[in-house]
Computed example of a mutant assay.
Amino acid sequence: MFLPLLTTPVTALTTDIDHVNIDFSSGAQTVLKIVIATILFGIALDIKTSDFTAVVRRPFPILVGVIAQFLLLPALTLLLTIVLDVRGSIALGMILVACCPPGNVSNILTHRAGGDVALSVSMTAISNLLTIFMLPINFAFWGGLSPNGDDVLRDVDLDPVKTFLEIALVIGLPFVAGVTINRLWPRVAHRVHKVVGPVSFVLLLLIIVLAFIGNWDIFTNYITLVLLAVFIQHLMALALGYGVARGTGLPSRSRKAMTFEVSVRNTGLGLVLVFAYFDGLGGMALVAAWWGLYDILAGLVVAAVWKRRTAEPAEVVAA
């Protein structure tokens, strides 16, 4: 085993993490779904139809981002879980995170880093739209290839159609509603977005924190199993986003946008799926919840350092 920290049981543990379930009531799950739907609604309120037509105007960087998010990140994550030899539920949690879409936090971090916000917003819009169809397929495919996760996945009745409907309800419906309102009543959308976005985001963080508090013994006993895995996976996602942007010749501001679009994941949606289909399976829930907190903190640090080191007049981005 390459990393004993991730695979050697902690002395306080009495149960394998693959057989531990996070206590999350059905009422709390419903609230979580509503909050995630509200977050996506808030994102969509700030998205214009022109953000989708950007695929025609700037197809290359968006295509690069789609390939990096929906193909390269899950594939590299699968390889990482094999190298780290993590437990099955942790491996599935890492793969699920890699299959989740970006959130509007990526737009905020891109702005704070002095990146190409227009590209970031367009990529977020396209990625969330594709996620409705791609997430069930992607997760079933890469999860099924995981040597450790396949056994766990085989014990779960993961119906792709039901998963699609769940994602369509949580992401698709509020996303379409938000874009439609912005198209028909842009002033109303602008005002509502200022309230809905921050409030729903704070509520999500509050739910995650309360879940940690309510399951404190599980958190303290098992968190060491996911700390290093999440750290390496997030670092890999940052490097992947920057690497593909630099390797394909994108300008500096676009590289910043690509970095955050690939590394920022909407793990709240991941948690919804973990509790809906995996009964709050310990490793999956811990990975998704910890990633959601660590992602923001690490992203803010990277954005601040990046902005300070590259403070210069904005580049002209070719259409």
Rank of each mutant, 00 (worst) to 15 (best):
K48A: 07
K48F: 06
S50M: 03
S50W: 04
D51H: 00
F52Q: 02
V55P: 03
V55W: 09
V55R: 05
V55F: 10
R57S: 15
R58Y: 10
P59K: 02
F60M: 14
I62E: 06
V64G: 07
V64C: 04
G65R: 01
V66L: 03
V66M: 08
I67W: 11
I67K: 11
I67N: 04
I67C: 01
A68T: 01
Q69M: 15
Q69Y: 13
Q69R: 06
L71H: 02
L72Q: 02
L73H: 00
L73Y: 05
L73K: 13
P74Q: 14
P74G: 08
A75W: 15
T77M: 14
L78T: 09
L78Y: 15
L79W: 15
L80K: 05
L80Q: 06
L84W: 09
L84N: 08
D85Q: 04
V86F: 10
R87T: 09
G88Y: 08
G88K: 04
S89V: 01
L92W: 11
L92Q: 12
L92F: 10
L92K: 03
G93K: 13
M94S: 11
L96M: 14
V97T: 12
C99I: 03
C99V: 02
P101C: 09
P101K: 09
G103F: 01
G103Y: 05
N104G: 14
N104W: 08
V105H: 04
V105C: 00
N107P: 06
N107S: 00
N107T: 04
I108F: 09
I108G: 08
I108H: 00
L109R: 03
L109H: 05
H111G: 12
A118D: 12
A118C: 06
A118P: 02
A118L: 01
A118G: 07
L119G: 06
S120P: 06
V121A: 10
S122M: 08
S122Y: 06
M123I: 10
M123R: 11
M123W: 12
T124Y: 06
A125W: 01
A125Q: 01
A125V: 05
I126S: 07
S127D: 13
S127F: 07
N128V: 07
N128E: 13
N128H: 09
L129I: 07
L130G: 03
T131M: 15
M134C: 15
L135Q: 07
L135K: 04
P136E: 13
P136V: 04
N138M: 15
N138I: 08
A140T: 08
A140I: 09
A140K: 12
F141D: 04
G144L: 11
L145H: 14
S146A: 13
S146K: 12
P147T: 00
P147W: 11
N148T: 11
N148H: 13
D150L: 15
D151H: 11
V152H: 07
L153P: 01
L153W: 10
R154C: 00
R154H: 14
R154F: 00
D155W: 00
V156N: 05
V156C: 10
D157K: 13
D157Q: 15
D157P: 03
D159A: 04
D159F: 04
P160G: 02
V161R: 10
K162L: 12
K162T: 04
L165I: 11
E166A: 14
E166Q: 13
A168Y: 12
A168M: 12
L169R: 09
L169F: 07
